[in-house]
Design a protein around this nucleic acid. Structure first.
Length: 271
DNA sequence: TGTTGACCTGG
DNA sequence: CAGGTCAAC
């Protein structure tokens, strides 16, 4: 069973709307229609957005020696890792850098409204995510008008790289190979790359080390010092330690821990 | 290789 | 400060 609202609001995916009993998810040039059981229809292709093939039972077993994760998989039962459109995922997490979730959502919505094709589905108006070619051909001055600030340059550069085929065949690359490819794009460092590797390339060993996770790993596991790594080498060392500790489903574990950290935070979450 | 700051925007 | 990245010492 999938916890659809819980998954959609877990900070992996930003462009979704709740209308009546359905959720509509913008995924590149595709719109997914989702109910509480999962994807039931789409404008283009029905994709396995919620990764229904993942062996959740096996994941539970791999967490058996970890009391915290064992508790969290029950508290947040049904939380999934998503499988998103690559380009939209790249831009989403470039936009996320040094920002916050309410603003990330607003920025991405603005990008769709200004540069994406308008369409209708179930008599509801939507704007699709723009194509790489469109954003690559847009002056950074106009991209900035979406409120993304200095990231506009990165968005344009990454769009051009993808339009020119940089990421072709990335699904067949190893974790390290794909990481190297992704990090060639402006605005994509280790953390953003891990988000893309996990949410779009199916690498469950990818663990995005953001401020929240770094804090949790220090406080609950005694790994790292709780401060954000500032060099790639530092990030890699910490990543190896975290991955070793969380196991083969480290990416899932990260998502549970991220959810916990945010839910325990002082301020009420703004969705 | 390691260290330091700047960087758009808005809550 | 916020789900980092980049570039100049």
């Amino acid at each position: 069973m999938i916890d659809v609202p819980g998954t959609l609001s877990s900070g992996q995916v930003f462009l979704w709307r709740h209308v009546g009993v359905f959720w509509y998810v913008i995924d590149g040039q595709n719109i997914l229609k989702v109910d509480d059981t999962g994807v039931i229809d789409a404008t283009r292709t029905i994709t396995d957005f919620f990764r229904c093939g993942d062996d959740i039972d096996r994941m539970h077993e791999s967490f058996a020696q970890d009391p915290l994760l064992t508790e969290l998989i029950h508290r947040y039962e049904g939380l999934r890792i998503t499988n998103q459109n690559l380009f939209q995922c790249v831009i989403s997490f470039i936009v996320s850098a040094n920002s916050n979730i309410p603003r990330i959502r607003r920025n991405l919505q603005d990008i769709c409204h200004r540069f994406g094709d308008k369409t209708a589905y179930d008599d509801i108006a939507f704007c699709l995510f723009p194509t790489p070619a469109v954003l690559a051909g847009t002056d950074t001055h106009h991209i900035r008008e979406c409120g993304v600030g200095y990231r506009a340059q990165h968005i344009q550069g990454a769009s051009a790289a993808i339009r020119d085929g940089l990421c072709d065949g990335i699904d067949r690359m190893s974790y390290k190979e794909a990481q190297g490819t992704l990090c060639e794009m402006p605005g994509v460092g280790r953390k953003v790359a891990d988000c893309i590797l996990l949410f779009s390339c199916g690498h469950l060993e990818a663990v995005p080390l953001d401020r929240w996770i770094i804090r949790v790993m220090h406080e609950h596991y005694g790994i790292g010092d709780g401060t954000t790594p500032h060099t790639t080498r530092q990030y890699d060392i910490l990543h190896d330690d975290v991955r070793d500790r969380l196991g083969p489903y480290a990416g899932y574990a990260q998502q549970y821990l991220f959810k916990m950290a945010r839910n325990n935070s002082e301020k009420p979450l703004k969705w």
